[in-house]
Design a protein around this nucleic acid. Structure first.
Lengths: 212, 212
DNA sequence: GAAAAAATTGACCGGTTGGTAAAGATTACA
DNA sequence: TGTAATCTTTACCAACCGGTCAATTTTTTC
């Protein structure tokens, strides 16, 4: 009888080792995928990063795509959280300011996740059509919130969609283009302080540009 | 006697066919590299896109890296032109506005070039250390120009480096994250009009955020 | 129009890559 | 403690990929 894939088993519950190893593998996969893209990453690399053999890794994940898909799904969950928290009842400029802060913190704390996502979008988002659907719904909803703020004169008359794009672009830039940012800032300024400088600048830019 | 590589020939001048074919290949290579990244692109794919056999392609370019390098070098030349044109003697807000416009036009007209570059930076810019050096010099120079504008009270007191990053991020976003932008805007708004909407929004954001 | 040079092709090669088969080692549980 | 389930490894394979070779066809040149 062939060895049963653990995740194919129906009701059999996950063992301790399964949970540990899967976590270990996903961590390694994130490291490799975010650095080389889906196509550029090899299973061997991921296995080595995880400290196990390739067949052993494939015992936990049927193939490369399953790993990648699982990472993207996880990522989007936490990635969109800051936008979900944008509160229609809050003070508009404060809400936007908090949103920018949170996004920038995520770029600082989870750059690999940001790059994983960027890699995927850059190549036309071929593997994540479904997830993009949810993303669109969320953005549509929050765009309406922003429109209402504008109607009430709490915000400059800007296009809510492009406003959201500009927040994504400016904050994720510090994760996705980190190599360029550090190179241009030079060794002296490319310590962790760059995120505080960025936060200060983005505050100025957006508060100045968006106030009614 | 082995067939001589045309570009290895010292004084022999390029034939008509050489010029045509090399152009054809670089165009195909841009298409494929920008869509799949360096590692994800295969010579076979590029050859097919260019409508020739793989050995034929390799008759013009020694290997994959040479093609890639040539594309990157060309790209950076035109890519940095808008920043070079930022004129210290001009009216600061007008200069910055023109810079944003030009960058946005480039994102619209040369999205593949933008994605090629983004792919490279995203993976840590391993193949373009030299080019990054030139980039840094140019940015340093222009950052000084911006600082002088600020000293003269022509611009809000912002960090010039982060200001440049934010312009790069917001404009290139429309090329690099095009798949996401179009998905979120939906079919109705994702025609070419999105660039005009973006230009309008970015004008508001930056003029509002940067005026003294 | 013939010889030389340039361009093109099919066949091929060694290394890599995603993934499998099957047997052995370890762990959980009765 | 025995044994069944789980986990791990070695050996392997077929497809792919970057690149070469040698022979053929096309173009240029005299």
């Amino acid at each position: 009888m062939p060895v049963a894939e653990p995740r194919a088993a129906k009701t059999r519950r996950r063992t301790r080792i399964q949970a540990e190893r899967e976590e270990l593998i996903l961590e390694a996969a994130l490291e490799v995928f975010s650095a080389h893209g889906f196509r550029g990453a090899t299973i061997d690399q991921i296995a080595e990063q995880a400290g196990m053999s390739k067949p052993n890794l494939l015992y936990y994940f049927q193939n490369k795509e399953v790993m990648h898909r699982m990472l993207i799904d996880r990522l989007l969950e936490t990635w969109l959280e800051p936008l979900r928290r944008l509160d229609a009842e809050g003070e508009p400029l404060t809400e936007i300011r908090s949103y920018i802060r949170r996004k920038l913190e995520m770029a600082r704390d989870y750059p690999r996740e940001s790059r994983l996502f960027a890699n995927e979008i850059l190549q036309g988002a071929p593997r994540i059509a479904d997830e993009m659907e949810d993303l669109k719904k969320l953005v549509d909803e929050k765009a309406r919130v922003i429109s209402r703020w504008i109607e009430r004169g709490k915000l400059a008359r800007v296009d809510p969609y492009h406003m959201i794009f500009s927040i994504w672009a400016t904050t994720q830039h510090y994760a996705d283009f980190d190599a360029q940012v550090c190179k241009v800032l030079g060794p002296k300024r490319s310590g962790e302080g760059r995120f505080e400088d960025a936060a200060r600048y983005l505050d100025q830019l957006f508060l100045g540009g968006l106030k009614p």
